[in-house]
């Protein structure tokens, strides 16, 4: 019997699964009208072409700039704010319901409002991505900081820790695993926000590529671009997971 923990077995499984997906895509594409769906081979051909002409590279660069500006802004605001809320119970009580509400709300609903408030330029789009990213990070950071045992704060005070050292030694490392869960959620949501902003505010980047392809009945280009977004999303999520694991060895794998 094959042992599922052998490395080559795992890689073979991945390869077979990817191959199976490609075959299904190919067969489905050949059976359907080219105006609706395009086979795997044609999509790959178009992908290579879009890479060569540089339109995919340029689109991707524009979209990534937007994505990372929004995500970065969310990171530098939501993380400190979340930790601050954890150390200030009264403020937390005042705003926690609002945070939950906004965390649960589909941010797409706010896009018309952003449009009328901020217009359609890069800054407005960054705000859209920011809004998609901000609440998952904030919500999870607050949860993480709340999960820190009060005993540890007492220990810190018994060892005459300064407030700053309490943050460094206890609040930040204690909230970190939860915050990283929030960051991984934010990556997924931020990609949605990125494409939504490029669709609804002003066409640019990957969003524009998708819309142009659709308008020109270039289904191969459309699916090539969608595939790239999907790969990008998974790569970023995997990066988030790897970072989280690297810094949470102390939890011993049990979660």
């Amino acid at each position: 019997m094959l042992r599922s923990d052998a490395r080559w077995v795992r890689w073979a499984t991945y390869a077979l699964s990817a191959l199976g997906g490609a075959v299904l895509w190919e067969l489905g594409g050949r059976g359907a009208s080219p105006a609706i769906f395009s086979p795997f081979s044609a999509s790959m051909e178009r992908l290579v072409e879009m890479l060569r002409t540089g339109e995919l590279g340029a689109g991707l660069a524009g979209s990534l700039a937007l994505f990372f500006a929004g995500l970065g802004l969310a990171l530098v605001t939501a993380l400190p704010f979340g930790l601050l809320l954890a150390r200030a119970p009264l403020v937390r009580a005042a705003v926690s319901d609002a945070i939950l509400l906004l965390y649960a709300m589909p941010m797409v609903a706010l896009i018309p409002f952003i449009l009328s408030l901020m217009g359609v330029d890069f800054g407005a789009k960054v705000i859209v991505v920011f809004l998609f990213c901000f609440f998952p990070i904030l919500y999870n950071t607050v949860e993480g900081a709340r999960s820190i045992k009060p005993e540890l704060i007492e220990v810190a005070r018994a060892f005459r820790s300064s407030e700053w050292a309490i943050w460094r030694d206890i609040m930040v490392p204690g909230a970190f695993p939860y915050a990283m869960t929030g960051v991984r959620q934010a990556i997924g949501r931020g990609l949605v926000g990125m494409v939504a902003a490029e669709f609804f505010l002003s066409a640019s980047g990957i969003g524009q590529l998708i819309m142009t392809s659709a308008r020109n009945f270039d289904t191969a280009g459309l699916f090539a671009t969608v595939l790239i977004i999907a790969l990008l999303g998974s790569a970023l999520m995997a990066l988030g997971r790897a970072l989280e694991d690297r810094f949470t060895l102390w939890r011993g794998g049990g979660r």
Binding site: E151, L152, E154, V155, A158, F159, R160, D169, I170, P173, G174, F176, T248, W250, R251
Partner: peptide, 17 residues
Amino acid sequence: PLPRTAMVFQHFGLLPW
């Protein structure tokens, strides 16, 4: 607070990380 004092806790209070 008392100077030069250290405490050992029932709950150990080790930092898990």
